[in-house]
Amino acid sequence: MFLEWIKKQGKLFYEIWPLIPAAAYLIGFLIIIGIYLINLSLTFANAGIIYYPTLKTFYDVFSNPKFLHALISTTIFVVIGTPLELIAGLFLALILYKSFIFRNFIRSIFLIPLAIPALVTATLLFILFDFPGGHINHLLMGKYPLFPQLIQEALNWRASEFLALGISMIGKIWRDMPISMLILLAGLNSIDPELFDSAKTMGAGIRQRIIYIILPLIIPSISAVVLLRSIEMWKEFIFPFVLAGKYNLLSTLIESFYNDWGNSYAASVVALIMVFCIIITAYLFILLMEYFKKRILRS
C-alpha cells in the first residue's frame, strides 16, 4: 500500500517537477510579503527603541489626521472614478459595437491608451494641465478658435486638492477605459441580434431598446467592470503621485510615510488597510449583486 503511494507520488513528481521553481518563487514571495507586512505593521520605533509586537503603529496611523483624510479622499476617488470609467468604457464599447466598416482599425486605436506607460500619460497630463500656461488653461480661457471662454484666469491645477485629484482621476480613466470597453464589448456581443429586430417590430425605439434590452443583458459585464475597476482605483499610485503629490491618497500616503518619514512601519499599516478596503469593497459588492439578483428575479 505504502509503496504504491510512494510510486504514485514519484510519478506525480516526475510530471510536475518543472512547475516547482515557479511555484516556489511565487508562493515564496507571497509568504514574504505577507509576513513582512504583518511584522512591520506590528513594529513601533521611537527614539531608537523598537517595540515588537505592538499595536502602537496602528494607533499612531489612525490618530494621524493625514491618514483619515487620505482614506476619505481615496474613498471619494473610488466612488466617483469607477462610474466615470464605466461610462467611458460603455461609450467606446457602443461605438465599436455598432461600427461595421473599419471596425478593427478603430478598435486598435481605442486600445492605445492602455499601451502607453502610465508614467508617460501622467507626464502628458502634467504638461497639458500646466499653470499658468498649458493647453488646457488656454483652451478654457477661450484662446483657441471655436471654443468658448469658460474661465477668466488660469487654474492652478496641481495646487488645489480637488483639481489635482480630479486630473489624476481623468488620467487614470483615460488610460484604463479600454479595459472597461473590452469587458462591456464582450457582453454586448453576447446579445442575440434578433432580440433587437424583435423589439423593433414591437414598436421599441432606440432609447427603449437600450433600456429594456441592452442594459439588463449587460448587467453581468457592468458588474465585472465595477468590481474590477473599483479595486484598481483603490490601488492607483502613479497618477496621484505625479499630479497630486501633496494631497495624499492611501497609495501616496504609503510612499510619503516610507520615503519622507522613513517610517516603514506606518507605511505597512496603511498598506494593510488598503488591502482591507479592497477586500471589503469586493465583499460588499458581491453581497449587493446577490441582493439585486434576488430582486430582479422575483419581480
Binding site: 429586430d197 414591437m202 414598436g203 425605439g205
Partner: peptide, 11 residues
C-alpha cells in the same frame, strides 16, 4: 422605420 409599422414578426 420598423418600430412605427405596427407589424408583428415571429422569428
Amino acid at each position: 422605420p420598423a418600430q412605427n409599422r405596427k407589424i408583428a414578426m415571429v422569428f
